[in-house]
Amino acid sequence: MILLEYFLNFVIIVLLFLGIFFFFTATLGLLRFPDFYCKLQATGKGDTLGAILILLGVVVYILKEDFSFATFLVTLKILFIIFFIFHANPTATHAITKAGLDSGIIPLTKEDLKK
């Protein structure tokens, strides 16, 4: 039983650190990438995966503490949040990208980087 608890703690820590890692890379991309579309790609992908991983870590933590109907309801709400983020975040990124393309921002190409 104590082995299972160690294993679950390990899973929680790994999930949280992976989430923090993806948030970090997303922020790094936002600050360092050269172009509007590159920046959007970094934040759109990294933020979604980071938030989902951190919330999954929270789910495992809650279920490890107390496995009952009340915690199951809390878990269900967090899973709904994951579902929402999974759909809303890429769509918002798509909308911003499309708005940028419509208003005439030209994507960066290899020739621009060579200059």
Binding site: H87, A88, T91, H94, A95, K98
Partner: peptide
């Protein structure tokens, strides 16, 4: 835009 409309 179809993607935005369907997701909304």
């Amino acid at each position: 835009d179809l993607i935005i409309q369907v997701v909304c």
